[in-house]
Nucleic acid binder design. Structure first.
Lengths: 225, 225
DNA sequence: TAGATTGTTAATCGATTAACAATC
DNA sequence: TAGATTGTTAATCGATTAACAATC
């Protein structure tokens, strides 16, 4: 159905809109809980249910859903099936999200293996590397020469890429991806890359996450004696 | 040096304190920029430098540094060397952060290979799996039977673990890790796990990140015609 | 009807930014 | 001294929560 787009755009531009990042993350969590509740036989769900399951206030649940025009009944909660449908549409889970992987090192290869088959909407359709010895153009998910990357992106209309190259190579490849028309990049390299409105970058720095964890573990008291 | 702890604790408990998560992330970014500036020969750095490099307001830079009692000179900026020292201390980069990996699937193994050697403070000292065929107790970084995990954690005083098991196994292992005394977990599984004050969980859900990217790419206009 | 739950407004909370006095 | 930059206060901004009227 195409009826989703109008209200989505409206919501995004409305005055009360929160940070897209955070709200989408919550919507995705709602979806996870809804899937589990459905398998338990639920047909309707209340804001309190989601609140309890996720430790988020019920107000926020209602507000989030209302922001995307997902309506409940004043007394009967939200119909689970339609809620899920709308979330699937919104999060692109009902369509297949084709992505490419740039850089077949350890992590790139691991992601390739994990997401090489279509799994709940995410599908790695090709990978690229500069090293001749890792190329595998005839594999189920082909590993191609990075020289052919730009053509491939244009031809296959790829919009999202996962960047898993060595740190030094990251900025240059980032530029190439943006130039080739990629609209979103999941950056696994430690290189801190800033996105543009045309090409959004999501940085996912593992070392940074470990450092944060270290800090939180060491410098926030847990058992106030 | 042990002089760091007092001011850290003070800062953490001060009234004006921001979310530790975000502030630590920024501190880590500051550190990255400082490293680069140092290699360029800088001896002092101004809040404006960090502001420009990171697209963060100069006010915030000064506020962040002041929150951790890192002081500059009214006219001469911040001394780069001591700033770096203090950041290293605070982020645990000067000590080695020993972590274990739980689950040697694709991603677990990739992380093991990448962080198996001490690299800028992060060091994977052991990995665990349930499958006999992947065990390698004599490897440089041993892959051990998950049955020995709890003992290992206690004996080696491990505080941080990376969780890369299949989704269904995640909750149970999470409980075991917490019970064994682990204080922080980097959760790579799609299972949404809530931390406790005693055991902090950092969720890092790759599919979620791709979904967010999809949403941002599709539903925020880039070229307002 | 009485009770429950939504949708939304107003209040709160917290983080970011602007501005400026202090001072090198 | 004049100019520049910090440290900090006050203003702003945005997101979360509480509360409640609408209504099923």
């Amino acid at each position: 159905m195409d009826t989703a787009k109008p209200f989505v755009y409206a919501a995004v531009h409305s005055a009360t809109m929160q940070s897209p990042q955070d709200i989408v993350e919550r919507l995705s969590r709602y979806r996870n809980v809804l899937l589990r509740l459905r398998s338990l036989g639920f047909a309707r769900v209340f804001s309190d249910n989601l609140s309890d399951a996720l430790g988020i206030s019920a107000s926020q649940v209602r507000r989030d859903l209302a922001a995307f025009n997902m309506r409940g009944a004043k007394r009967g909660g939200y119909p689970l099936a339609t809620l899920l449908e709308q979330l699937d549409l919104l999060l692109g889970v009902s369509t297949t999200l084709n992505v490419i992987i740039v850089g077949c090192g350890n992590i790139g290869t691991a992601l390739l293996t994990t997401y090489g088959k279509r799994r709940e909407g995410v599908c790695v359709v090709a990978a690229f590397d500069i090293r001749a010895e890792v190329l595998a153009p005839d594999a189920e998910v082909p590993i191609l020469d990075v020289r052919d990357m730009d053509t491939y992106i244009t031809r296959e209309k790829i919009e999202v890429a996962i960047l898993t190259v060595p740190e030094q190579a990251a900025p240059r490849l980032m530029d190439r991806l943006a130039a080739a028309g990629i609209r979103g990049v999941l950056n696994f390299t430690p290189a801190q890359i800033r996105g543009t409105p045309d090409c959004i970058v999501q940085n996912l720095n593992i070392r940074l996450e470990i450092e944060k964890l270290f800090y939180l573990v060491h410098f926030t008291r847990h058992n106030p004696l």
